[in-house]
Design a protein around this nucleic acid. Structure first.
Lengths: 200, 200
DNA sequence: CATACCTACTCAAGAATCTGAGTAGTCCTC
DNA sequence: GAGGACTACTCAGATTCTTGAGTAGGTATG
C-alpha cells in the first residue's frame, strides 16, 4: 500500500496534475517510487474520494483541461500513520541480475550488450540527479543545506537514488568488462554459447 | 515473467527443493530476485509441467518427503532466449524512502528508528554476503577468481547485492544522523511533529 | 500538408505478487 | 511432556502492477 503514500508524499511539494506526477514517477526521476500513469490516475481518484487529496479543475485554452491535486490535512495525518508503521524490507528485483546469474551458462554476448546499455542509462540518471540536487540546495553546500534547509526529504531520497545509480553503473561496467575478458580469453571451461547457433 | 527465469537460473547450480529455494529467495540471500514460498512452489509446478525443470522424489525417514528439481536442457534454452531479450529497467521501490521523502512534514522520530533498524539489517546482510563471496572464490583472490573461476554468475550478482546493501547502510546511517541533528537542533522551520500528540 | 509527438486522461483485462490459513510429522527446550 | 520451532508443502483470495488500446485537440517537423 505504499503507492498511495508515495503520491501523498509527492503532493506535499505543491500542486501537480496526474500527468505531471506520471512523468515524475515514470521516466527519469522516481527517486522514491515508481508507477505507471494508469496507476497514478486510479490512485488519485481513490485518494480524492477518501479526502486525502483535493483536486481543482484548471481550464486551459490551448490544451486539454487538467486537475491539480494537493495533499489535505487528512492526507498528512495518513502519512504520519504510515511513517509510524513498520516498513517492509526492500529487495532488488532486476531482470539483468537474473541474466548475469546465468550468464556463464547461457552465453555472454547479449548480456554484455545489455550491461553496457544499462550503464549508459544509469549514467544519464546520475547526471540528472546531480542537476536536481544542485537546484534543490541552491547556493548552500550540502552540509549546510542538510542542516538548515527547509525541505530536505526529497533531497535525501535523491541522494539515495544517486548512489544507487552510481552503484548500478559501476557494477554494470565492471561486470561487462569481466565477461568480455573471459569471452576473448577463452577460459577453457566452456565454449562461448553466443557463438553457437541458437538453441531454441 | 522473470521469476520463472530466476528459478531456472537458481537451479543451474544443482538440485534444490522448493523449500530450499524458498529460503534462498526469501530470507537473507536473494541476490538476484525475491519471492515467497507460495510463488516458488507454484512456479516449480508450472515449470515442471512445461518440461523446463525435472523433479525427483526423495523419500526421507525422519522428515517429510521432498522433491528436488534441476533445470533441463529445454530450461537452459529458455534462459538463453530470455538472456537475448530486452531487459526491463529496474526501479527502487522502498517504503522507507517514501517515509524519508515526507519526513520533514510528518515528524522524524519513528523514521529515524526505522532507518537505524534498516542499517543494522543491511549490516547483517553485508557480513553474510562477504562470507558467501569468500566461500565461492575459495583460495583465489577476487581478480583471479573472476578471470578463471568456473561459475562466476552467482559471484557477480552477489557483488551487486553487497554493494547495494553497503549503499543502503551508509545512506540509512547518514540520513538518520541528519534527521537526528535537526531534531535536537530545532531548525525553527517547524516544530518536531514527533513531540506532538499523534494525529490519528 | 501529412505525420508524428505532446498534453491529459480513461477503460479493461491480465499477470505477478502478497496475505493468511492450514496440514502433519519431527526435533529441541524447559 | 508441552510448547514451540523446523521441514515440506498446499490452497484460496486479495491487492498491486503491467499491458494494451483508445479519445481528442494542439504543436512541431520535414
Amino acid at each position: 500500500m505504499a503507492l498511495r503514500h508515495a503520491v501523498l508524499a509527492a503532493l506535499l511539494d505543491g500542486e501537480y496534475s496526474g500527468y505531471q506526477l506520471a512523468k515524475a514517477f515514470d521516466v527519469g526521476v522516481a527517486n522514491f517510487w515508481h508507477a505507471l500513469p494508469q496507476q497514478l490516475y486510479a490512485e488519485l481518484t481513490k485518494l480524492e474520494r477518501e479526502g486525502l487529496v483535493t483536486g481543482r479543475q484548471v481550464v486551459q485554452e490551448t490544451r486539454p483541461n487538467k486537475r491539480l491535486f494537493r495533499t489535505t490535512d487528512a492526507g498528512l495525518a495518513e502519512l504520519e500513520r504510515f511513517a509510524a508503521a513498520a516498513s517492509k524490507p526492500s529487495f532488488i528485483r532486476d531482470d539483468l541480475l537474473v541474466k548475469v546469474q546465468a550468464a556463464d551458462r547461457t552465453g555472454t554476448g547479449p548480456v554484455i550488450e545489455q550491461l553496457e546499455e544499462r550503464a549508459a542509462a544509469a549514467d544519464a540518471k546520475i547526471r540528472l540527479f546531480g542537476e536536481i540536487l544542485r537546484r534543490m540546495r541552491g547556493d548552500a553546500d550540502e552540509e549546510e543545506f542538510l542542516r538548515h534547509g527547509e525541505r530536505i526529504g526529497p533531497y535525501l531520497t535523491c541522494l539515495r537514488g544517486l548512489d544507487f545509480e552510481q552503484g548500478n553503473r559501476d557494477w554494470c561496467l565492471r561486470t561487462a568488462a569481466v565477461l568480455r575478458e573471459r569471452q576473448t580469453a577463452g577460459t577453457g571451461v566452456r565454449d562461448d554459447a553466443s557463438v553457437r547457433p541458437a538453441t531454441r
